[in-house]
Amino acid sequence: MRLLDFLKGERKKSASVAKERLQIIVAHQRGHRGQPDYMPMLEQELLEVIRRYVKVDQDAINISLDSDNDCSVLELNVTLPNEGETVKG
């Protein structure tokens, strides 16, 4: 397959791979910009608590903090697996 790509001159250039990777990581970093310093710890500990009861992956949890003028909302999204995959039956 690589050879075919090579012969067709369609090998993906490394610079465009770099660009795609950077776009993803920078968007992720910006999502965390300006949030309180305790957020990563909070996220980690919440994940640990949830994992005591349900089997979830690291990326199955999504946490964000939105601030309006006079109140902040901590939003927590967890994608639960299919039934029966709990840690403790």
Partner: peptide
């Protein structure tokens, strides 16, 4: 190296940052 596609070009860096 930018021409060879092995270095991020200026526009890419500008766009990302």
């Amino acid at each position: 190296r930018v021409d060879d596609g092995d270095m991020l070009n200026l526009e890419d860096i500008r766009e990302i940052l």
